[in-house]
């Protein structure tokens, strides 16, 4: 993708890709997650043992797998945007589909993880760590679902020929949102699953 952008590198773009409104939304979402991350970090430093004990119970493998899945799907959506920028709507559709399939993979792994936790009798009220763990991952999970819905809407519109080389803001908007979901997970995973 670096090749496609090379030409634009000299003169900076006025605005980020996609609809500006989504960026306001993205920044707001980042703020929410940021506050959650910090609340987690400081709450942990007050309950060190509890957090370290409970953290052993989370499934790191599943988390790591999901990191891989999300980054891959994020890469796919980059390809989708690149394709539509060159006017290849069909390829764009394929890449979007690939994004959604990998994104669904995340959902499957996550659902498995949740069922494992609920099966073990863990809920939001188990202890402070699990309050954070579950509310942060579930909140992120819902963002993945929302991201998939957005991507699906983009995919449908694309299939009906709604986007072209000149007009593809919708694709960029959906892609930006999906990257945000990825970005948040990249912080969330090491923080909640690994660091102790």
């Amino acid at each position: 993708m670096s090749e496609t952008n090379l030409t634009q590198n000299q003169n900076r773009e006025e605005y980020p890709p996609g609809d500006l409104v989504i960026w306001i939304f993205i920044y707001a979402e980042l703020l929410v997650f940021g506050v959650l991350f910090l609340a987690y970090a400081f709450s942990r430093s007050n309950n060190l043992e509890l957090f370290n004990e409970s953290q052993k119970l989370v499934n790191q493998e599943a988390g790591a797998l999901n990191t891989l899945i999300l980054i891959t799907s994020s890469y796919f959506v980059v390809r989708a945007v690149a394709a539509i920028r060159e006017g290849r709507a069909e390829q764009c559709g394929h890449w979007l589909l690939a994004t959604m399939i990998t994104g669904s993979g995340f959902i499957v792994v996550k659902l498995y993880e949740f069922s494992e936790k609920f099966g073990a009798g863990i809920s939001l009220s188990t202890n402070t760590f699990f309050t954070y763990y579950l509310s942060m991952t579930a909140f992120h999970f819902m963002h993945v679902v929302l991201g998939l819905i957005i991507l699906a809407a983009v995919w449908f519109k694309n299939r009906r020929g709604g986007y072209s080389q000149e007009d593809h803001m919708g694709v960029e908007t959906g892609a930006s949102y999906w990257h945000m979901v990825d970005l948040v997970w990249i912080i969330l995973f090491p923080l909640v699953y690994v660091i102790r």
Partner: peptide, 9 residues
Amino acid sequence: MSDKFTKSM
């Protein structure tokens, strides 16, 4: 650039 920011979005 005004439609960088659409009402429908």
